[in-house]
Design a protein around this nucleic acid. Structure first.
Lengths: 228, 228
DNA sequence: ACGATACGGTCTACACCGTAGAAGTGTCAA
DNA sequence: TTGACACTTCTACGGTGTAGACCGTATCGT
């Protein structure tokens, strides 16, 4: 029996899990700029080298922080409708991004390969296979789906999607109206932009686009009055 | 006449433009990890502080590097067809990402506001207004379009879209086949994934989705005659 | 019971980073 | 000449990640 004691033998009361939890907390609240091995050590009253002794390098620690955040992904059960399932996965990732916005960008640096990730991928791939598309198309669209969703969320967490500030509004309005008519037309809409609606519309467009690509025989949703 | 002399008076032969060019080059070739003010100084045989004197801070230098890369965006003329125009803008950004993959992520850190960006946005917004969608929807979809495209390209430049490696393939195949049937089905497709096709399919799906959202009255165009 | 071994933890030291502040250095206007 | 000013450099400070040596203790094979 290799592991009878749960607490193991740590001279200090700290497990490696505790270290990871503290690191996660510090990174999530302070952001990458406010995170360093030394600061983590100070917060735990621990020598900084102790943390490196457990994780090997700061990079590996960050990788595990990213992994840990993925384990909190809350994936509702499949509905059986692939359109809904794609939306559900997208919303689950968005929820994750909103819970830990300061560390979401880590998911790009360390392409996650944890079990949580595989579970959500399976939902996505199953959904795309249900469309009847050939495997090559399903695979490409699956990865594209992730890239799109994660990309959108990164943009959102990095502040690219915020309603226009006064300064930005001024900059846009200063543009030559003859050369930038569409931009001028939309300035008002940008000021009152609703990120939730934008996200749902974008995901909806993507899903509808996939639908139109594959199985036009299927009946469209009731709100669609028009047909191709 | 404040600028009669092109070269200005620099004791060394270096203009601020030269500094920016060199910084751009160094960053583009070495990546962020290999870029530092000190290294830039060494490469130019210049004191590092000279760089900061011109740019104020490293952060501002990076911002200008990002801006500079955006000025190389090659935007073909509008076709008049909003679907094609959206695709054109997406491809222009992808071309940019492929030319300078090591610095593409900077576009997320510094939401670009340069003139090059306004020019491409205008194309996107004009395209979306041409769909006949209301301004709110057009604005949201416009930002979503950027988030999606940039996100996809970031994923691509960061390596999330590469065909499966042997190791990753093994990891996927090791998954329980009963629990991950779709993943298993697609492993082969992932090994031979074509990023170009995935990108075109994804953008196509998004555009088609927008089309289905608005004006199905327009006749779909067979891609028989293309113009560019 | 007793070294051997391994491991958790610490300490010191090194190379590198961004940059504030002071101190040259040159060129131009008065 | 005398400033004034932009440019460049030097020095120094506080921060970073981490390699390498060191120490105490717990476990194990004998």
């Amino acid at each position: 029996m290799p592991k009878s004691k749960a607490k193991s033998r740590s001279p200090r009361g700290l497990d490696r899990t505790d270290l990871l939890n503290a690191a996660f907390e510090l990174f999530a609240s302070e952001g990458e700029a406010g995170f360093s091995v030394r600061k983590l050590g100070a917060a735990l009253d621990i020598d900084p080298m102790t943390v490196l002794h457990h994780f090997g390098s700061k990079d590996e620690l960050l990788r595990q922080i990213a992994d840990r955040s993925l384990t909190t992904l809350e994936l509702p059960p499949s509905t059986g409708d692939w359109r809904q399932d794609l939306r559900i996965v997208a919303r689950a990732y968005r929820d994750l991004a909103h819970r830990y916005p300061r560390l979401f960008h880590l998911h790009f640096r360390f392409h996650a390969t944890g079990p949580a990730d595989h579970a959500s991928s399976e939902v996505v791939y199953r959904a795309l296979l249900q469309t009847g598309l050939p495997a090559e198309a399903a695979a490409g669209l699956g990865l594209a789906f992730y890239a799109f969703v994660l990309g959108f969320l990164l943009a959102e967490t990095e502040g690219l999607l915020l309603p226009l500030s006064e300064e930005e509004e001024g900059e846009l309005r200063a543009l030559d109206e003859a050369s930038f008519p569409a931009t001028h037309t939309l300035v008002r809409a940008f000021k009152t932009l609703d990120p939730d609606a934008a996200f749902e519309a974008a995901i909806g467009a993507f899903v509808d686009g996939i639908e139109s690509k594959c199985c036009s025989a299927r009946p469209r949703r009731p709100d669609a009055k028009l047909r191709v």
